[in-house]
């Protein structure tokens, strides 16, 4: 616990008779400070947990992450990693990469199907020829067939050569008010 020099000085000035009382007072103050610190910490933790807790929507039992492990030097090869984590035992998984017309798959399996181990990450790697610096979007489509018969689908996209997008509005967005924001679409 930190006490200022002034507080320390005051404590030293106490006579012997007061020292005992001071000591108990100090203990009480320390106790109060501790309680206060504890409460403060508890409040802080509560606040943090409040902000951390979000109720997200249900997701199917498969995780999919897609990313570039190597930015293409255009024209050149982009290396794309697709990580798939089935979270349950299943009877089949279809994994397919859909490329825009101008992109060419140099290596990697465009369509794969089989069974993967539950809760284990499997990485599928693709080498893709990128002809120019235009922005292209490739899509991974994953279909998981559960042992109970149902299928679930996940789609993830990846932009190659992404460009910083402006805050684009639709064609018919015509105004945003000054006093409060109103986005207006033509409604007729």
């Amino acid at each position: 616990m930190f006490y200022s020099e002034k507080t320390k000085g005051i404590i030293k000035m106490q006579d012997a008779r007061c020292k005992k009382a001071q000591s108990s007072r100090l203990k009480a103050q320390r106790g109060l400070l501790s309680v206060f610190s504890f409460q403060l910490s508890a409040c802080f933790l509560l606040l943090i947990s409040c902000f951390l807790f979000i109720a997200s929507k249900p997701i199917p039992p498969i995780e999919v992450i897609i990313g570039l492990s190597k930015q293409p030097v255009v024209p050149g090869i982009a290396i794309v990693n697709l990580k798939v984590i089935p979270l349950v035992e299943h009877s089949n998984i279809d994994i397919q990469i859909e490329l825009p017309e101008k992109l060419r798959l140099v290596s990697g399996i465009k369509k794969w199907n089989g069974i993967l181990e539950a809760d284990k990450t499997e990485t599928f790697q693709y080498q893709i020829y990128v002809p120019d610096s235009k922005t292209y979007e490739l899509k991974a489509v994953i279909i998981l067939r559960m042992i109970t018969g149902e299928t679930v689908r996940r789609e993830e996209t990846l932009e190659i050569n992404p460009v910083a997008k402006k805050n684009e509005y639709k064609k018919n967005h015509i105004k945003e008010g000054k006093d409060r924001g109103v986005i207006e679409f033509k409604g007729e």
Binding site: I174, G181, V182, I183, F185, K186, G187, E188
Partner: peptide
């Protein structure tokens, strides 16, 4: 229902 900047959406007439 608002966008990320708390602007409300609308449809408008001419």
């Amino acid at each position: 229902i608002v966008n990320g900047s708390s602007s409300v959406y609308s449809v408008v007439s001419d």
